[in-house]
Design a binder for these strands. Structure first.
Length: 459
RNA sequence: GUGGCUGUAGCUCAGUCGGUUAGAGCAUCAGAUUGUGGUUCUGAGGGUCGUGGGUUCGAGUCCCAUUAGCCACCCCA
């Protein structure tokens, strides 16, 4: 028998970890509900067609494909071999694979809306908390199976949605006790406009990917990459002046206005950023920074885009991201339904909170009372009393076998159980139980009948 | 997909220049203690040294391959 292992990039979550993760998930969920979002769940797998081509060329490579069943069918052997030849050439063939694990929650939402738009009430505000899978090579803060928590508003062009979503980010991270996070925003139209100034829309993606790396690799490397993509020095200097925009949000707005002049596309983008920035002035703590270098890889975004950076002290990629897409369901044959959404990366938020020690201590509650097992008659009595306590909402356990005190105490200790109830021969005779508080060593003898009213503390 | 680092007991790790029977701490189990835990003391179990091959009289140690993990790139939550 060989030792079992986990598939690369996946993890088991033990009891303590699950409690901590649930703390994050519940916080997010509560805020989503508070803002009027409704839950949605979609299958782990989608038809491959639904996913392919939605995440860019790189994204397609990272989709986990599921092998069809029945490939060993002798009657279809010839066809299957032909199909497999095509797979070897990098194609996707239905005969070999027609399903895949979902890659994010936005495309499944689009698919759902496209299928159900006749019955949905718009704007459709949904949240979704589910695992997604990416065939990426794992590293720090990157897993092959991880949870996304998305909130999207589908069917509304109003910027009020962006305003709400920005507030959801602030609310969640504030509730989690995370200080020093930063919500970066930008507008896809600015990136489009920049591409227009630099030789056309087909360079849009190259430019987006390159400028997005600015804070990571520095200006020189970005320029090198752009030059590698075929931009001449004049165009690169335009990009450079765009990247050099700095200062406060006000400064950046005026610099952008100056740079783009009367460019129609950029004008619209700047206007929206400005609206959002001004609307936020009256809100609670909301560290919103306009960052022209923010571009985001997923190419369905068309409007304002978001990204949340963890506190600078933590070396970790973004812990949330999102943006507006004008026509997502158009890909599925239902045009003119706009949407805007955000996503929380729970696994990264977990890692950040662990690193900064932000989890409250009281998440790890367990059993409150352990009944010792001191024999056949004794354990029956203990069981009876225990059930009464359970009925009153006290979390109890009866030790599973009659063994030495030593072991039963150690069990209580290891599981952090604050009280033990000892019912042995002596107690049976006197119809009492001996309650010991482990932390203090204090013991109290009370009648069986008084146990129900004993105060075992909170929770 | 590309590159770097690491795999020795359940966990964290030593292991010299290639040399006899591979060690420690923690954890586990047993005893000191048949109704009182945490501290202490004594003892025990536990290993295909990731896997396969090679060099050598001899390999945990050197070489090659492979696999897994971590980290970085690409890309992203």
């Amino acid at each position: 028998m060989t030792k079992p292992t986990l598939p690369q990039g996946t993890r088991d979550f033990g009891p303590e970890v699950v409690r901590k993760r649930n703390y994050i998930l519940n916080t997010i969920k509560n805020v989503f509900e508070l803002y009027g979002f409704q839950p949605l769940e979609t299958p782990a797998m989608e038809n491959l067609d639904t996913l392919m081509g939605k995440y860019g060329e790189e994204g397609d490579k990272l989709i986990f494909k599921i092998l069809n069943n029945g490939l060993d069918n002798k009657e279809k052997e010839k066809q299957i071999k032909e199909d497999f030849e095509k797979v070897l050439q990098g194609k996707n063939v239905k005969g070999i694979t027609e399903r895949a694990l979902k890659y994010d929650l936005t495309i499944p939402l689009a698919r759902f809306v496209a299928m159900n738009h006749n019955t949905l009430t718009f704007p459709f505000k949904r949240y979704q908390i589910q695992p997604v899978w990416r065939a990426d090579r794992p590293q720090k803060g990157r897993y092959r199976e991880f949870y996304q928590c998305d909130a999207d508003v589908v069917g509304s062009n109003s910027l009020l949605n962006e305003l709400e979503l920005a507030n959801i980010y602030a609310e969640v991270f504030t509730r989690l006790g995370l200080k020093g996070f930063e919500i970066k925003i930008n507008h896809r139209k600015l990136v489009t406009a920049l591409a227009e100034l630099c030789g056309g829309a087909e360079k849009m993606n190259d430019i987006a990917i390159a400028i997005d790396k600015l804070d990571k690799v520095g200006l020189e490397k970005v320029k090198e990459e752009l030059s590698g993509k075929g931009l001449d020095s004049k165009r690169i200097s335009i990009v450079e002046s765009y990247l050099n925009i700095s200062g406060g949000n006000e400064d950046k707005i005026s610099a952008l206005k100056k740079l783009f002049g009367d460019n129609e596309t950029a004008h619209k983008g700047i206007e929206e950023l400005e609206w959002l920035k001004d609307s936020l002035l009256t809100a609670h703590y909301l560290p919103l920074t306009i960052d022209p270098t923010l571009a985001r890889g997923l190419n369905y975004y068309t409007g304002i885009i978001f990204e949340v950076k963890p506190p600078a002290a933590v070396k970790m990629g973004s812990i949330g991201g999102g943006g507006r897409y004008d026509d997502l369901t158009g890909l599925f044959g239902v045009p003119n339904i706009p949407g805007v959404g955000i996503s929380f990366g729970v696994d990264r938020i977990y890692d950040v909170m662990e690193e900064l020690n932000l989890f409250p201590a009281n998440l790890q509650f367990s059993t409150q009372v352990l009944f010792f097992n001191l024999g056949e008659k004794e354990s029956k009595k203990a069981f009876e009393l225990m059930q009464q306590l359970r009925h009153n909402g006290i979390r109890c356990e009866l030790y599973h076998e009659a063994v030495k005190f030593d072991k039963q105490f150690k069990y209580a200790e290891n599981k952090n159980i604050p009280f033990v109830v000892i019912i042995g021969e002596k107690e049976m005779q006197s119809q009492t139980c001996n309650i010991k508080t482990l932390a203090t060593g204090k013991q109290e003898i009370i009648p069986f009948s008084a146990l129900l009213n004993y105060n075992f503390g909170e929770k």
